Simulated scan of single mutants.
Amino acid sequence: MSRGLYGIDEVRHLVNDDPFDALFECLRRIWDADDAFEAKQVADREYRTRLLEREISRQYPDLYDDLVDRVGDHPLMELTDGCGIIMDGMSLREGFRLAADLAEERDWTVEYDWAACEGLPTETKFIAQPWFNANGGKQASMKHDHVAYIGEPEVPPLPGTSPEYVWSRFPDKRLHNSQEGQYTLTELVEVYDEAKELVIDIIEESVHDRFLVSSDHGYVNFSGNNPYRLAEEDEAILKEKFSGRYREVEHSGLLRKLERDGIIHRAGGHYLIRGHHSWTKRGATSRIDHGGLTLVETMTPLLTVDTTGD
């Protein structure tokens, strides 16, 4: 039973074409709405997002192997001119809304697609390093003439090179406020609006008229009910072995059990939480996190923006 998660067009796409393109369209059905980030809507849409992935993973056993195979060779690194904008932590959710808003509010030509992230785990330090040789994966350490780093919600002088890159710490910086107990559902609208205005400011300050807007990774949001269930033994192992959504590989029968049970997935030298599994942790915990292996962490938004109107 699809529960409105996909229609006949998406089913045909899943069966006959690229399954991840079909899943992108399924996520569009959930998130491409003006009220997507309103407080009353978020929990339901997040639940449907988790339910979609759970149902598809049951019907498509190779989902996560194939998703890992897609990782790397991000289009941002293939730019030969124009400007690449990296909005740290921006997910497909924001991408659907941003594509519509930029086209409507600025009358720019906007095309929206997706691309798998550059590396795993879905954590900035594993992506900033191969992209820009960031020291320890820290974006602020990127010292390149063609890269500008934005740590506050204002645009500094841009490089003016071709290509040029702009790495914004937003919206991830605001989303991480949730780890400090400062996050509410209502504020998601504000987080999105701030990120959108920053994208617009970057585009208007740049000397270029063609832009590729994307991100390093997405995130999971555990607001609302979760259809994923853990056996008590598996939850106990997660509490013992994981402090977040990934960890380094070690020889452990307990970790191998989690792998057999479909709770974690090995990618290179790390184990990643597979799907939207969550468990009770000590102290205050954030509902928003990343580092694991889900569609919304691994599939990044890809907006092509042309400000000439051509």
Rank of each mutant, 00 (worst) to 15 (best):
L188C: 13
D35V: 06
N225P: 11
P157G: 11
I85Q: 01
R58H: 12
Y228P: 05
G137V: 07
A236M: 03
T186D: 15
R29E: 01
W279P: 00
L27M: 11
I8M: 12
D216H: 05
L293C: 09
G181S: 02
A236S: 10
P163M: 01
I200R: 12
Q182I: 12
G283I: 05
S2L: 09
D193C: 10
T122G: 12
A128E: 13
L79Q: 00
G283P: 07
L175Y: 05
I200D: 06
H265N: 10
P153H: 06
G151E: 09
L27K: 04
G275F: 00
E232C: 11
G218C: 02
K143L: 14
Q59C: 14
V296C: 13
L92W: 03
V305W: 00
P159E: 04
H208L: 07
L255I: 05
L175P: 05
N133L: 11
A134K: 04
K257A: 03
R260A: 10
R45H: 08
E240L: 06
V71E: 01
L23A: 05
P75D: 00
E78L: 09
L295H: 10
V166C: 05
K257V: 02
V15F: 08
D88V: 00
M90S: 04
T280Y: 11
D201W: 06
D18W: 03
L14R: 01
R28F: 05
L102H: 07
V249L: 02
E259K: 10
R169Q: 14
Y246D: 08
K281D: 06
L102W: 04
G137M: 04
Q41C: 15
R210G: 11
D44P: 10
A103H: 14
P163C: 02
N177P: 06
E235M: 00
S286W: 03
S223L: 08
V11M: 07
D289N: 14
M1E: 13
G89H: 01
R266A: 09
L185Y: 06
I30S: 04
E38P: 10
Q129I: 14
R70Y: 05
V166G: 01
P75G: 01
D73W: 06
K196W: 07
W279R: 03
L303C: 01
S91I: 03
R245C: 10
Y6P: 02
L102S: 06
E180M: 10
D32T: 12
L230N: 04
V199N: 05
D101R: 15
S2A: 12
S252A: 00
S168C: 07
Y192M: 07
G224Q: 04
